[in-house]
Design a protein around this nucleic acid. Structure first.
Lengths: 109, 109
DNA sequence: CCCATCAATCGCAATATTACGATAAATAAA
DNA sequence: TTTATTTATCGTAATATTGCGATTGATGGG
């Protein structure tokens, strides 16, 4: 128990849920919004922006990297992060695809 | 520790993250897809559709209800569920608003 | 009334997530 | 070389999530 039963769902369902989950934390939302706002690579002043410890930010960055939403490139002694435009677009498309499917009929409730 | 530090984020960031989190599990994705496919109120044959115990499904339904995505109306001895069109539309709009903000410039990474 | 059925809730166990201090590894500056 | 800075990782603690069996409360049929 305690583990999600991924084997009973389709690959697509698991993938979509994973994408949503990656965005399911305010720190990760904030990080992405910051990167979007800066419209450029951003060295890790993210730690200064949010009120979380460096180790915690690093963990959140790793999760965003895991789903491919951000890239990090080593820049001397620090690391620069930016949004992966292609993956960002993919997320957008997949999410739109999910929500577009519902056409409002006359439901009872 | 262990708790998300909601107080350091904006209301909007917390809300958006909460919405994403609600969709961050394949069972909840599957439930919504099923309701969308049926395009109608659906009594709890959802339990038969997915391979999860009744108690577990009930929990997932409760979470979807919590964010308002579905409504449940008592129909005799069973309960009928359907998607809340207004909230569905709201999710769609908010998600689109989040993703639209990124315009691809020439980034370094 | 008595029994069957359906769905929410309780209680529990297993696992995942969040957060942070401490440490390690890498590079830059002195 | 020594020191400072930056970031990933480790270890740990607190809390949340997932899943299920059992129970409860409600309704309908007999």
């Amino acid at each position: 128990m305690g583990t999600t039963k991924t084997e009973i769902f389709t690959e697509k369902q698991n993938k979509l849920a994973g994408m949503m989950k990656a965005l399911g934390h305010p720190a990760r939302i904030a990080i992405l919004q910051y990167l979007v706002k800066k419209q450029a690579c951003v060295c890790n002043d993210i730690v200064g922006e949010l009120g979380l410890a460096q180790a915690t930010i690093s963990q959140h960055l790793a999760e965003l990297k895991k789903v491919g939403l951000i890239n990090g490139t080593i820049e001397g002694t620090s690391v620069c992060y930016c949004i992966d435009a292609k993956v960002w677009e993919h997320f957008k498309t997949v999410f739109e695809g999910f929500f577009v499917k519902y056409v409002n009929k006359d439901n009872c409730c």
